[in-house]
């Protein structure tokens, strides 16, 4: 009995000895794992923030690369599937040396048509403007403004023609569609 008690005590002491050096090691390992996990989570959050920043930079770059649409207030734009109708009124007068009112009307109409064409070209394509002022002895001697338009106009329609007191007015319109310009 005595020996058995001693044996039990020895065994328990041996087991205690065997457990005591290992326990601080496992605690240390657990601490290390915990610290590593926190580090990894920190790195993960940093990576995610970097990725977010990269995505925002890429989106900014894409928006910078894309052609900017300048839309002014009250200006019609030619969007896909929609048509733009441009309407103008050209004016013309008959020459002085006409032989009959009919000839005067015909010639005035021709002049008004040309004016309407010019107005359409100005609206669709734009106008070149050049100005020059000549100043001598602090006085404006000559002031010149030159404008020019060059365009090709097709499928313009005359809507209405009026002739009153020698002045002919031609109302003309043109319908522009997106398909005409998208190639």
């Amino acid at each position: 009995m005595k020996y058995s008690l001693i044996l039990v005590a020895l065994l328990s002491a041996a087991s205690l000895v065997a457990q005591t050096p290992s326990s601080p090691q496992t605690i240390g390992n657990l601490d290390k794992i915990d610290s590593l996990e926190t580090k990894v989570s920190g790195i993960n959050t940093k990576v995610s923030t970097v990725e977010e920043k990269l995505a925002s930079i890429e989106s900014d770059m894409a928006s910078m690369r894309a052609p900017k649409k300048i839309v002014r207030e009250g200006e019609e734009t030619l969007s896909e599937g929609a048509d733009v109708r441009i309407s103008v009124t050209g004016q013309g007068v008959a020459p002085m040396n006409t032989t009959s009112p009919a000839q005067a009307y015909a010639l005035a109409k021709r002049a008004a048509t040309a004016d309407a064409y010019r107005l359409i070209a100005e609206k669709v394509k734009g106008v070149r403007i050049d100005g020059q002022d000549l100043i001598k002895n602090m006085m404006v001697k000559r002031s010149t403004v030159r404008t020019s338009v060059k365009a090709m106009v097709r499928n313009a329609n005359v809507v209405e023609t009026t002739f009153k007191e020698g002045l002919c007015e031609v109302e003309m319109e043109i319908v522009l569609s997106h398909a005409q310009f998208a190639h």
Partner: peptide, 10 residues
């Protein structure tokens, strides 16, 4: 279709 050429001077 016609080519339009306009010049104006003031």
């Amino acid at each position: 279709g016609l080519n339009v050429e306009h010049k104006e001077s003031t």
